[in-house]
Structures are given as structure tokens and as C-alpha cells.
Design a binder for these strands. Structure first.
Length: 482
DNA sequence: TTTTGAGTTGTTCGA
DNA sequence: GTCGAACAACTCAAA
């Protein structure tokens, strides 16, 4: 008689540690089919972008390698998830299937259909909490409604003191993977055809086997001064874990426990501040779950009537890092080159697109989606609605970042500018954030011809700011409607 | 029930 | 140079 098997359907949980779906499969004692299905068309409008696919390619290779250490083989499929599952079920004598939950609106709907379809044929189909510290339904305010302000949300989260975490040991895996047709990872064509990915390659090592070492480097070098250092884009002040978290190559629960278990007084403030950022990730996912329309509509509907400008040239200049505002351009070029941008600079470039160019936050969200290796629907949506002032706990309308002031404050020496804008290499720090104000002889000496070697500012910030305030003032007396 | 105070990330203006 | 106020409207909890 053929041995029964269980499917572990890997999705955004590309890890073996703290993986409840894998635990559940192992507990059955059956043979195991680790499965990844590439079904981009089921992600709704939000098909993974080029940087995200690049990351996924190498992450799948890493997962494959880790599974092989235990004699298991990662099965790769492409197409509609339910059809592929059914095909694998047929060829593999499968009696149960396990996966860890995702929270994107189109995926929630799809997974619900898949679960009921599988169960109706008598299979055991179970999903687990693995990628959040708290399920969306576990946290609500006193009226039983979802929080819309972060601080009370996080306070309420912290009252739940128990966060599960699986310590199941993997060393005694005795089962194997039956022979089943599988694609090669290469055949998914996740890598770019033109080789623009050099910058990504030199910046990142995707895969869960690297996530842990990045966390421990951060703990020993960054955590203590995290509250202050995290705002300086040229410093090594942040964890760089965002892409690993998005793909589930490290679980938020293992980060939570690792950080909490550090017993050093001098790290206490850093621990609280860092975990709070993990809280923002939770907040974003809960909001996306409760307010699914926010992926492309403002939560506060009166912002839908905001008079956005249609400005393809401005949008292009922003995307290419040619706005003439060095801190904005440096950020956009860091993004293009490495697939990532420092958080402080994300706010600055976001504010510039939305408040200075008056281009809609949706355009910004789309560009970030295509270019970020950590592109995450929940975080991206929350971040852009925050900048746009139209979401939950959004920035107040009058909070318009001044790109010069921000540059001078957080990159005083211009180190970040120098790294990303070689045209300004010889510019003294005093003028590096506002080259258009530099005296002629300084520009000459620095071999800068504004408008030729580096752009003149495409908008005047002060004028743009007043225009934005005026436009926002027009919304003042509108009411939100359902 | 009503009121009060606080709320990730800022800027400008006038004293 | 430094400092506080003003810049909405709304959410949420505590008083």
C-alpha cells in the first residue's frame, strides 16, 4: 500500500523554522510534499513586481536547498492554485494539506474558496497563524471595532502577553517526498531578461538562511542606538529585515522572542523601539484586512476628490531621481539600484510626490510596488496613505516635508547624497542639499552646470507647499461618505 | 454621558 | 539663534 502524504503549501512563509503548517504536516507522520505554486494572476491588481520576483527566485533556491538537507524536495508549480493543488493531490496520494495565512484582500477570498473546495472532497485542509503576532480579529477597541490609531492599537496588542512560537526540532525528519512532476525554479522566469539586477545582487542575500545572521548583526551592532540612529539614511541604523519579513524568511514571532529574551539593560530602549516598528507591520496588516478597499482607495473617502495633477514628466523625473532635490533623487536612485530605500527617505520622497508634485499617492504606491524587494501590500498601502494624509492615523494635512530641511537634518554631511549622486561629488556639504542656491563660483569649482550635469529643481518647494495647502483646504468641509 | 487630552516621523512665523 | 504657537479633524481611552 502506498504511504499517505501531506502537502505543505509554501506561500509567504519561505522558512522551516517557526512554521506551523510544516509542523502540522510533520505531526501526521506522513510523507511530505513541500509545494510552491507561482500564480501571479491571483494576486489581483498587485502582481509581484520585478524586484520582488528577483527576490523570490533566490529565496526559492534557498528553500529548496534547506529542504534537501532533510531529504525533502520542493515541488514547483505554476498556474491557478486550486487546479495545481488538485493535480498534486491526485498524483501524490494526498490526504491533508496545510498552509500559513496571508491577509491580502484577493488572497483571503481565494484561500477561502480553496479551503472549502478541498474540504468538500473529503480532504483535511488547515490554515495557520504564522506571519503575524496577532490575527486581525484578536485586536479591537472597546466598541469591538478595529483600531484606527496606532498607539492605542499597539498598547492593546501588548496586553496580550502570550505570543506562540514553535520550537519544533527539525533534525529527526524521517519522511520523504514522493516522486511528482515539478517545474524547475528557473523556468518560472522570475529573473529579469535584461541584467539590471547587479545592484540587487551586491546588496542582498535572499533566503531564510541569511535572515537570522542579519538579525543577529543588527542586535549586536544596531539595536542599542536604534531609536536615534534609525533616522540617518547613511548610517547602519536599521535592521534591513523588511524583505525577509515580507516573504516569511524570518517570522515576526521569532524576532519578537529573540528581542524580548535579550537581558541587557542598555538595550531596553532599543528593544521597545524596534518591537514598536514590528507593531506598525501588524497595524498595516490588520487595517488592510479590515479595510480591503484601501489598496487603491483612500480610507477617508473625501480625499477621492482631491485634484491630483496628471504630470507624466514630473512622475518620470521623480522615478528616475532627476527632480533637482538631492535628497529626493538620492532616495529614488537607491531604490532603483538596490530595490530598497531607507525609511526616513521613503517619507521624504513620498511627501515630495504627493505634496510638491501633487501626483496621487496611488502612482507612488505603484512605483514602489514594482521596484522594492520588500514590496508588501499592507505596508505599502499604509505608508502611502499616511503620506497622502488620507488613511488611518495619517500625517496631518499640514505636515509637508521640506526636502532641503530634511536633507540638512538627517544627512548633514551629505554622505547619503554623495553615495547616490556622483554629479554632486565635489559639492561642499553646505550647499549639497540646495545646489541651486550655491554661488556661481562654488558651482564652477564643483564642476556642476545646473540644468546640464544635474537638474534644476522641477518645482519651487515653497510655492508647491502653498498650492498643496490650498488644495487640501478645499477638502476641509467635505464629509466622508461610505 | 460628556469632556478632556494625546496622538511616529513637520514647518513656518513671530516674539 | 531659540522657542512656542498655530496649522484640522478625528479616534480612543480615561476621567
Amino acid at each position: 500500500m502506498t504511504k499517505q502524504t501531506a502537502i505543505v503549501w509554501f506561500r509567504q512563509d519561505l522558512r522551516l523554522e517557526d512554521n506551523p503548517a510544516l509542523d502540522a504536516a510533520l505531526k501526521t507522520g506522513y510523507d511530505i510534499i513541500p509545494l510552491y505554486i507561482w500564480s501571479p494572476e491571483e494576486e489581483g491588481k498587485w502582481i509581484p513586481g520585478a524586484a520582488s520576483r528577483w527576490w523570490l527566485h533566490y529565496s526559492l533556491l534557498d528553500l529548496h536547498e534547506q529542504l534537501s538537507k532533510y531529504g525533502l524536495k520542493l515541488i514547483i508549480r505554476e498556474g491557478k492554485a486550486l487546479e495545481q493543488l488538485q493535480d498534486v493531490i491526485q498524483s501524490g496520494h494526498v490526504s491533508c494539506i496545510f498552509w500559513n495565512r496571508r491577509y491580502e484582500p484577493s488572497i483571503v477570498i481565494r484561500d477561502r474558496q480553496i479551503k472549502s473546495a478541498l474540504r468538500s472532497t473529503g480532504l483535511q485542509a488547515e490554515s495557520y497563524k504564522a506571519n503575524l503576532l496577532f490575527e486581525p480579529h484578536e485586536i479591537s477597541n472597546k466598541q469591538g471595532r478595529p483600531f484606527q490609531v496606532f498607539t492605542p492599537f499597539w498598547k492593546s496588542c501588548l496586553l496580550h502577553n502570550k505570543i506562540e512560537y514553535s520550537l519544533m526540532i527539525r533534525n529527526d525528519i524521517k519522511v520523504s517526498t514522493p516522486k511528482i512532476p515539478s517545474l524547475e525554479i528557473e523556468s518560472l522566469n522570475l529573473l529579469p531578461k535584461i541584467h539590471w539586477d547587479q545592484g540587487l545582487k551586491s546588496s542582498w542575500k535572499p533566503g531564510s538562511s541569511h535572515a537570522k545572521e542579519i538579525l543577529s548583526t543588527f542586535i549586536s551592532h544596531g539595536l542599542q542606538h536604534y531609536p536615534q540612529e534609525r533616522d540617518y539614511p547613511s548610517h547602519q541604523g536599521v535592521s534591513h529585515l523588511s524583505p525577509y519579513l515580507h516573504f516569511g524568511e524570518i517570522s515576526p514571532r521569532s524576532i519578537w522572542h529573540t528581542i524580548r529574551n535579550i537581558k541587557k539593560d542598555e538595550l531596553e530602549e532599543g528593544k521597545i523601539a524596534y518591537l514598536r516598528q514590528l507593531g506598525w507591520r501588524e497595524f498595516a496588516h490588520h487595517l488592510l484586512y479590515h479595510f480591503p478597499k484601501t489598496v487603491d482607495h483612500p480610507l477617508h473617502s473625501k480625499y477621492a476628490s482631491f485634484p491630483w495633477r496628471n504630470d507624466p514628466a514630473g512622475l518620470k523625473a521623480w522615478q528616475k531621481g532627476l527632480t533637482g532635490y538631492p535628497i529626493v533623487d538620492a532616495g529614488m536612485r537607491e531604490l532603483w539600484t538596490t530595490g530598497w530605500m531607507h525609511n526616513r527617505v521613503r517619507m521624504i520622497v513620498g511627501s515630495f510626490l504627493v505634496k510638491d508634485l501633487l501626483i496621487s499617492w496611488q502612482e507612488g504606491a505603484q512605483w514602489f510596488w514594482d521596484t522594492l524587494v520588500d514590496a508588501d501590500l499592507a505596508n505599502n498601502t499604509l505608508g502611502w496613505q499616511w503620506v497622502g494624509g488620507c488613511g488611518a492615523d495619517a500625517a496631518p494635512y499640514f505636515r509637508i516635508f521640506n526636502p532641503v530641511t530634511q536633507g540638512e537634518k538627517w544627512d548633514g554631511n551629505g554622505d547619503y547624497i554623495l553615495r547616490w549622486i556622483p554629479e554632486l561629488a565635489k559639492m561642499p556639504a553646505q550647499w549639497i542639499h540646495k545646489p541651486w542656491e550655491a554661488p556661481v563660483e562654488i558651482l564652477e569649482k564643483a564642476e556642476i552646470k545646473l540644468g546640464k550635469t544635474y537638474p534644476k529643481p522641477i518645482v519651487d518647494h515653497n510655492e508647491a507647499r502653498l498650492k498643496a495647502l490650498e488644495a487640501l483646504n478645499g477638502l476641509k468641509y467635505l464629509e466622508d461618505k461610505e
